[in-house]
Structure formats: structure tokens, C-alpha cells
Amino acid sequence: MAETTTTTTSQPLKPKPKKRKSRLTLKQSKYLFVYSCLLLPLIFYITIRFYPTLYTFNIGFREWNILSPEKPFVGMENYVALAQDPVFRKSLWNTLIFIVFGVSGQVVIGLAIALLLQRINKFVGVFRVIYFIPYVTSIVAVSWVFRWLFMNNGIINEFLVNIGIPPQLFLNSPDQAIYIIIGTMVWQALGFQMVIFLAGLENIPKMFYEAAEVDGANSWHKFKSVTLPLLNPTIVFSVVIGSINFIQVSFTQVVNMSVNAAGGPLHSTITIVVYIYQLAFRQYSMGLASAATVILFLIVLAITIFQMKVLSRKFDY
């Protein structure tokens, strides 16, 4: 190996490059170019993403108030502290609620809209645009519009009072706030889900439906036995993306929609990312925040593996 290396190193330096050059065919040099181009993002990824990630694992075992130069090693203390922290447990539980209700709502409604849009012939473009606009609207703007809609004396309470229902606390209520935030997120992500499902539906060959019709299947049977199984890879994709999205992106919505901008009232809307931010940049406990980040990493990993293994069964006809 070493020998070949030395010979090859000297190759470009040899006085007669003509012969050597011919060894790299056009195709090979093309590959060389492609690989070297791909390397740059890899290096970027390693230094900007991968190294800090590993560093986070390290900090998770240390006590570090971000301002001080010392970072004493404390072993598992941060993890023990988190396990005993009721707010952290609450944030885990809330994150679970976000994923379960958010992702299922998003997938079911997104699929329903895609199925409906597939059936109509007129104004398809208009509807697609209408459903997609929220997705490209700023999250902060959407959050504040919903916040005003659900204000104590906002338009929704006005409506409720007019039809004889007592006004609700909505975002001020520890029981309702989280579902309003989830609803806002679902509404906003619908456009994206719709596009994915429309693409998935296009890929299902018509002949399966024709064959099913010949067998006398009604629409429900067609949906259950043809559409759903063949759409499975799309559903898995959208569930995985949706879950990760709900874990990560919930931050902006929660910060903008919760009454104290920090997951209130009474931590009822706090998610794990919001709590990590608070630990790191409000309380400056970088050790605790890093430990919580590692736990979040493990959760995302587990969810992804679970969804890949369990949900991505292949159907073939």
C-alpha cells in the first residue's frame, strides 16, 4: 500500500505525464470532480455540525455556567437533575402531545385535502395555492394573528358569546393552549403535506383502480386496499418529517403564542426545545441544556428508527 502510494504520489510529478493522463478516462476524471465537489459540504458538515454535536455530548457531563471559564466534570449529575426536574418531564410529555396530535392531524387532514383536490377538475390551481400559502407565510406573523384571534376579547370569543357559549381562556388556559398551538401548526403545515400527498397519489397507477372496479370494489375498499398501501412510503416520509418538524419548529410557535413567551401558562405548552433554550440562555446552565439536548437527540433517533422499521413495510402488487 505504502509502495503504491509513493508511486502514485510521484505520478503527477513525473516528467512524462502524457502516459499517466491517459489512465484517467473522461468518466473517471468526471467522478473525481464530482467527489471532490461533494467533499466540501462534507468538511463543512464535519466542522460546523458534527464537531459541535460531539462537543454537546461532552458538555452534558460538565457543569458550565456559560460565563465562567471552568467546566468541572460532574458525571451523570446533569441527567439525574433533569430526571428529577418536573418542568423537564412536563416538556417531554408536551413534546409527545405535540407529535401525536400534530402529526396525526397533519397527515389525516393533508391526505383528505389531497384526495379531494384530486377529484375536482376546476379551480385546482386556486385551491392548491390557497392551501399552500400558509406554509410560505412567516411563522411569527401566523402566530401573532392566531394569538389575536384567540385573545380574551378577540373575535373568536366574540363569536362564542354571540351564540351563547361563555368566553374561553384559550391561550391563557393550561388545558387549551397547547391544542391551539398544535392547531395553528397543523394549519400552517397542511400545504406541505398536501403537495407531498398529491405527488404520492399521482404515482399510483390508474390500472389498479380499474382492476379494483372490475372486482366490484366501492370507494372505501379502493382507498383501503389500493391507495393506502401504495401511499405508504409517502405517509412514512411525511410522518418522519412531521415528527421532526414538530420537535424542532415548535419553538417559534410556542415562544410567540404562549402567554409568557416561555411555554406558559404553568408550563402547559413548554416543549423540550423551548426548555433547552431557557436552560442555556436564560439560566445559563449549559451543562443541563446539553444533557437535555442529548436526550432530545436520542428521542429523535428512536422515533426515526421506529418509523423506518415499523411503518415502511413494502407493498407490491
Binding site: 503504491t4 502510494t5 502514485t8 504520489t9 505520478q11 489512465r23 484517467l24 473517471q28 467522478y31 473525481l32 467527489y35 471532490s36 467533499l39
Partner: peptide
Amino acid sequence: RFLHVLVLAL
């Protein structure tokens, strides 16, 4: 040989 070149180039 080509592989070596490639690896080395990398």
C-alpha cells in the same frame, strides 16, 4: 490502479 489514484486524490 484507478482506485488508488482516486483515494490518493481524495
